[in-house]
Amino acid sequence: MEIKKITYPLPKEHYNKSLFHIQKEQTEFQFGTVSLKKGTRIPEVGFTKHPSHEISIIQKGNIEMLNEDGSIKGYLKSGDVVYLEAFEAQAGNVLEDTKLIYILIKA
């Protein structure tokens, strides 16, 4: 067993902080935190597609999520839990300083 405190990246660090990264046979798990500043877009240009399923818990903040055609997909706010399929396109505009916890699962 390994125990860690939930901590977020410091302002001068990368916005993503991995707390656990575990690979067992054909399954890989990653658990971490993200801290995003109001007024930024994630990613800066285009969309991210990664090979892992993602579950994120919005601890604080508000993100406007975008469809690939630029329309608004929805809003992620404090208390929301979101699931994204592997390779699902994702991008968003950070409307408030935001902190979230994420779990990536790759089989």
Rank of each mutant, 00 (worst) to 15 (best):
G92V: 04
N93H: 07
N93M: 07
E28A: 10
I55C: 09
E54L: 14
G74C: 01
Y15Q: 07
T7S: 13
L36A: 08
G70L: 01
K73V: 02
V81G: 09
G32Y: 14
Q23L: 02
V34K: 12
Q23E: 06
K37Y: 00
V94L: 06
P51H: 10
Y83A: 07
L10G: 09
Y75V: 02
K77W: 00
L66N: 03
D80A: 01
E13S: 07
G74P: 04
N93T: 03
N67R: 12
M1L: 10
S35V: 04
N16A: 08
A86W: 06
T33M: 10
A86L: 04
I101L: 14
T27K: 09
P11E: 14
S52A: 12
Y102N: 11
G79M: 02
T48R: 11
S78R: 01
V82N: 15
H14P: 03
H50I: 06
L10K: 15
I22T: 05
E28D: 04
V34I: 15
N93Y: 09
S78Q: 10
F20T: 01
E44C: 07
K38V: 06
Y102S: 10
I55N: 02
I103N: 03
E2A: 09
L10F: 05
G46E: 12
L10C: 02
M65A: 10
L76D: 01
K60F: 00
K106I: 05
T98W: 03
K99T: 06
T7H: 07
I55W: 06
Y15N: 09
F29Q: 03
L104E: 12
L95R: 04
I55L: 15
G32D: 10
Q90I: 07
Y83M: 09
I63T: 02
I105C: 05
Q59A: 01
I72Q: 00
K99M: 05
I105T: 06
T33I: 14
L95A: 02
K37V: 01
E28L: 04
H53V: 08
I6C: 10
E64Q: 11
V82K: 13
